[in-house]
């Protein structure tokens, strides 16, 4: 028996066919035992379902309904705005997001985030990473960032874990160096008459022992040829100038200048 016939027989049993069609199908079902059996089965179901119409009497009452309505608030809900009531949300969300972005942009510092406390662990600098620029400051002094070769700065700026404000300061310093080299902190330091240029290490005059008690020992390792600067802890005069430690070796591959850290005494803060 095909599905279409079965469905029609079902309609016949449940009385969903018009009389003419029902009589035709009834005659056909009489000649087909399988169809007759199916019709009988559905008729039994139909009559059984009709027998389920009787339901026990309910115990509903107006009082019960009234108390239920009172429990959930007597007044019908006022007509809401429907779809329009939600339309204000996307613009407000956009405005909030825009405001947040603007606020963050405004609070970005114009200088690198340098922690002036000397108890900052030197572990801020990744071990063995000599591309991280050295920024050394003494208390109450404006920090000066060491400049780096372009490629090295770019690489440092792309580090995912680096504070974006330090990266911003690097960009700022780089642009400033390009536009006005004489205003570059590094240029000023390197060309200052008070600057001691020991090997490839630049030490400002202001941190010389003779000026205000700050002691900075400069020594050269005879075996490796590298120069070391050690700034002593007690040398923290309020008027002391910044220390910039820059290894000016050129990169063999690119020929650009390469800044490397020489030492990390307690009063040297690694920026970036």
């Amino acid at each position: 028996m095909n599905r279409k016939l079965e469905l029609r027989l079902m309609d016949l049993a449940f009385g969903d066919l018009d009389p003419k069609e029902a009589s035709e199908l009834e005659a056909r079902a009489q000649s087909d035992p399988e169809a007759a059996k199916l019709v009988a089965a559905y008729r039994e179901i139909s009559s059984g379902l009709r027998g389920l119409r009787d339901v026990p009497e309910d115990q509903l009452s107006n009082e019960r309904l009234r108390s239920a309505i009172l429990e959930q608030g007597l007044k019908p809900k006022s007509t809401p705005g429907g779809v329009w009531g939600w339309l204000w949300m996307p613009p407000v969300a956009c405005a909030l997001a825009f405001g947040l972005i603007m606020l963050r942009g405004r609070t970005a510092p114009s200088a690198p985030r340098i922690v002036s406390n000397f108890d900052v662990p030197s572990a801020q600098k990744p071990a063995g990473d000599n591309d991280v620029p050295l920024i050394v400051r003494l208390p109450h002094q404006t920090p000066v960032a060491a400049t780096k070769p372009k490629q090295a700065v770019k690489q440092a700026a792309e580090r995912p874990n680096e504070d974006f404000r330090v990266a911003a300061w690097r960009r700022h310093a780089r642009e400033r160096r390009r536009s006005a080299p004489e205003k570059s902190p590094y240029y000023a330091m390197a060309s200052s008459p008070g600057t001691v240029f020991a090997g490839n290490i630049v030490v400002p005059l202001s941190v010389k022992p003779s000026s205000d008690g700050t002691s900075a020992d400069v020594s050269t390792d005879p075996q490796t040829g590298s120069t070391q600067v050690v700034v002593h802890e007690q040398a923290k005069p309020p008027s002391a100038g910044p220390i910039i430690l820059i290894d000016q070796q050129r990169d063999s591959a690119t020929g650009a200048q390469k800044a490397t850290e020489v030492s990390t005494p307690d009063n040297v803060i690694v920026g970036g």
Binding site: V55, D58, Q59, L60, L65, A68, I69, Q72, P76, T79
Partner: peptide, 21 residues
Amino acid sequence: RRDDAEDIVQEAFVRAYQNLH
């Protein structure tokens, strides 16, 4: 079930009343 049916009827009319608009 009668008790379930009564609860549903009651809830249906409460909802109908609150959503007449």
